[in-house]
Design a protein around this nucleic acid. Sequence first.
DNA 1: ATCACGGTTTGCA
DNA 2: CTAACGTGCAAACCGTGAT
Length: 426
Amino acid sequence: MTRSIALIDCNNFYVSCERVFNPQLVGKPVVVLSNNDGCVVARSNEVKAQGVRMGQPWFQLNNLAKQHGIVAYSSNYPLYADMSNRVMGMLATFSPDIEVYSIDECFLDFSGFKTQDLTLYSQHIRQKIKQWIGLPVCVGIGATKTLAKLANYLAKNNPEFNGVCNFSVMMPQQQNDWFSQIAVSEVWGIGRNLTPKLHQQGIHTVLDLKQANPASMRSRFSVIIEKTIREINGIVCIELEEMAAAKKQIVSSRSFGAPVSDLASLEQAVSLYVNCAVEKLRRQQSYASTLFVSIRTSPFNKKAAYYKNGLTIPLPMQTDNIKLLTKAALWGLRKIYRKGYKYQKAAVVLSELVSANNRQSDFFDSELSGCKSDKLMNIISKINAIMGKGTLKLASEGYRQPWKLRQSNKSSSYTTNWNELIHVTK
DNA sequence: ATCACGGTTTGCA
DNA sequence: CTAACGTGCAAACCGTGAT
């Protein structure tokens, strides 16, 4: 049976979220910046038209921003996460089979639905999400996830589709016409490194890739590209994954708001990152076997000396205990710390994760795995979940945090914090 | 010659 | 006033020592 898979993608998601609560921004050039107000991570159409690239450092855009009056927001992740949950919750009512792919994208399996009805059904979905949440979305439909992604790309970039492109009702010849107009780099899984290599092979458009030989492309590149080619030809190789698989590795890394030289500040930052990683670890009910801690100076600063180092620490037992993990991380940090450098970033990685039911119990079952501290951990997690992140924390995180993120223009957390709701009326 | 390993780099979104 | 460039994950790769 031919499948029908839809990809629903929010337009310029972060920018659109800001516009919901600040409608004067509609029609104006708006960007949202990454952590530390470093790079552009979301652009309104007006900004894209100016040639601003995804991931471009904000400081490089000073002149252009002044010239065109570009409004820049610091990223407000609590707001975007909450808006995303609302969208996903609504989408789940339109099909029983759903994969939340990213904060702004979602696959719905419409297999078994009448393909002729899907375009109208998708228009209905768009209209409801606009009406109830305020966000604009586009829908792409195809026989595979890769085709759904491509259909979505067409829906986004060609007004004649009115936000919905359905390959399932399109003639093959017409599909190929579109494919011949889309650059191969737009295909899901074809990134900036594969693109020039494909160009060398004479593959420039999606149609070129569709007609390439999957087997020989596999031997030349990888199995990934073989799957991609087959998917463009309508053969499902990438299944819908309704249950998010447990992560094999959990990373918490962040750049500092200002360079840091003293060990004490690094210790605070690393403690916070361990906290953050452990929250994720416990949410997926896993235990870590090793912890990796690393620090580095800025690779961009040519005037100051560069230094980076990291250390993998095997843990005496599989654990989710924040005290034990913090202790290990700080021990590692002190090993790799060198005086006299301006550090810009630290990271904590938990790996060799095992899920709760596969966990090996410790023969000696010491206090570390025992009930006492586990109970304390559970209580800390619960209180933080109810009262807000960071309500309770280990003292090693520190009270004043001069190294914390720069966020010079963050909007209010309108939907997740009562105290910030007031700003809506100001 | 081949494998398992760990650590590092690459690639992608 | 100046300097200022993200994060998270997995797969691929690569050197090493063991078999």
